[in-house]
Simulated scan of single mutants.
Amino acid sequence: MPELATSVVAAVRKQSDIAIGNVVGSNVFNVLGIWGAGSIVSPLYAPGISMMDYWMMIIFTVLLLPLLYTGRFLHRVEGAFLLGLYGIYLFILRPQ
C-alpha cells in the first residue's frame, strides 16, 4: 500500500520517473529479497502458476520493452493496448 500511495502522489505531481521507479523497485525487491529470504527458511511452492502464466509474463515483457525504448515514454494508446491484452488473458483464464 505505501508503494501505491507514493506512486499516485508522484503521478499527480507529474513525476512519472519516481512513480515507475517506485513500482519496479518495489516489485524487484519483493521478488528477490522477500521471496528469496523466505525460500531459504522454507521452500516455496506455487501450484497455481502454470507454464501459460510464465509465457504470458515473458510475452508482456517482450512487448513492453520496445514500447518503452522508443522515447522511454508509454503513450495512452500503448497502455490501453497492453491493458486490452491483459483483459483478454484474464478472459481466457476465467473458469468455464
Rank of each mutant, 00 (worst) to 15 (best):
I34T: 12
R13Y: 08
N27L: 15
T6A: 13
W35T: 12
E3N: 08
I40P: 02
D17I: 04
S26L: 06
G33M: 13
A37V: 15
N30L: 13
R13V: 08
I20N: 00
R13L: 12
V23E: 00
S26R: 03
I40T: 12
N27E: 11
A10K: 00
A19C: 05
V8R: 05
S16E: 06
V9E: 07
V12I: 13
V41D: 10
I18D: 00
A5L: 14
G33K: 06
N30I: 13
A11C: 06
P43N: 05
A10R: 01
A37K: 05
A10E: 01
A37D: 07
F29D: 05
A19N: 02
V23Y: 00
G25T: 08
A37C: 13
A37I: 14
G38R: 02
I20Q: 01
D17H: 11
G36A: 11
S7W: 00
A10N: 02
A19D: 01
W35M: 15
W35G: 09
S7D: 01
I34V: 15
S16D: 06
G38C: 05
V12E: 02
V24T: 12
V24R: 01
S16T: 11
V41T: 14
P2A: 15
Q15N: 13
N27K: 12
V9G: 05
V23H: 00
A19F: 02
S7R: 00
S39K: 09
A37P: 02
F29H: 06
N30G: 09
V24E: 04
P2D: 12
S39Y: 09
P43G: 03
A11D: 02
P2C: 11
L4I: 13
R13E: 10
V9F: 14
T6D: 02
G36H: 06
V24C: 08
L32F: 15
N27C: 14
A37N: 09
A11V: 04
P43E: 02
G33E: 08
A11I: 03
G33S: 15
V23C: 05
E3I: 15
A5E: 14
G36V: 04
S26K: 04
G21F: 04
N30E: 11
V9D: 05
V24P: 02
Q15L: 06
S42Q: 14
V8Q: 04
A5M: 12
G36K: 08
N27R: 08
V8K: 06
G25D: 09
V23A: 10
A5Y: 08
A10T: 03
G25M: 11
D17E: 09
V9A: 14
